[in-house]
């Protein structure tokens, strides 16, 4: 996928980004889902489940703990977009990745890529 830049921590904030690594599976999939488009709760659950082929399940409790945590850590934010939710017609809350979140995700994906490369080079897993 071409969404991420080469896995290098941004030179001006390398330490800040490193502090968040490694990401947990839920956090990583959540950020990944938000890196493509703005999403609201139910759609996020769907996207995370689809992206991970069901490996990250539809756990609503874990999702909202992660959303709350990532919001407070300043990696994601709510967007201005408002669309009516189907049951009550209330506006849905959409989330999106902010700049720091995007950097952290990039750094994590780079880290994972290096782990995979290392494993391939050493012949592990064969």
């Amino acid at each position: 996928m071409s969404l991420t830049r080469p896995a290098r921590p941004s030179p001006d904030r390398p330490q800040e980004v490193d502090r968040y690594l490694p990401l947990s599976a839920v956090d990583c999939h959540l950020l990944l889902a938000l890196s493509r488009r703005e999403l609201y709760g139910y759609a996020l659950l769907q996207a995370m489940s689809d992206d991970s082929d069901g490996a990250v399940g539809m756990d609503i409790g874990a999702l909202y703990r992660a959303l709350d945590r990532l919001s407070r850590q300043g990696l994601i934010e709510t967007s201005d977009r408002r669309e009516a939710q189907p049951t009550r017609g209330k506006p849905r809350k959409y989330y999106r990745l902010n700049a720091l979140g995007r950097e952290v995700l990039d750094a994590e994906l780079g880290r994972l890529r290096r782990v995979v490369e290392l494993a391939g080079w050493q012949g592990a897993g064969s």
Binding site: Y42, L45, P86, R88, K90
Partner: peptide, 8 residues
Amino acid sequence: MVDTVEEM
């Protein structure tokens, strides 16, 4: 969370 549960 309530909204999401209802949608689910």
